[in-house]
Amino acid sequence: MKQNKKWYDYLWIVSLTYLILGFFNILFAWLGLLCFFIPLIISVTMGSKSYCNKYCGRGQLFALVGGRFGLSRRKDIPKWIKSHYFRYGFLIFFFAMFFLMLWNTYLVFAGSKDLSTVVTLLWTFKLPWHWAYHGTLFSDGVAQFAFGFYSVMFTSTVLGFVTMLLFKPRSWCVYCPMGTMTQLVCRARNGSSPHNT
């Protein structure tokens, strides 16, 4: 396919680098906050999903690995995954888990809990990750947040890869909480039909 590539078509490199950095120093996980705030700010201030449509490196990574490298069965995603129930349900679950993670971080900040140097996969499996922790200048809570946040990013990447293999390359985008949330923001901001206003 011949297309004029723009600078933002290479943002998958950033996403990949982010994942790799987490293996060396967990504190880099903090940078992932950008993938939370940028799409949100774009949707709130501009009322568009241009983050998804143009800049999201994770979507590009899946498109590249599943599409260009062919690591995808390219089958239709099951109906229930694209249903509103599942998408909104997953969004709620995701944020519930996110706040639980923030709460744990708070406990470590407050000193009532010890730092745990694990990355939790799929909210369940604790992977030892101490080798990516070399101490922090600040409170242990800073590191705890990094572990927690990297767990979120790692889990969503793994889920995304699994659905990429099973269905279409960017299947993750169907139930991605950020995608769902920014679409909801856009809906709320612009009325539910694109022809309104």
Partner: peptide
């Protein structure tokens, strides 16, 4: 099918005629 479109923009990226837009981030048109 605008009701289930997730406005991800994958379609927009591959269209050779640039016929697709996602006005206001709601669904593809």
């Amino acid at each position: 099918d605008t009701h289930v479109c997730v406005a991800c923009g994958c379609c927009m990226k591959v269209c050779p005629r640039k016929a697709i837009t996602i006005p206001k981030g709601i669904c593809a048109e």
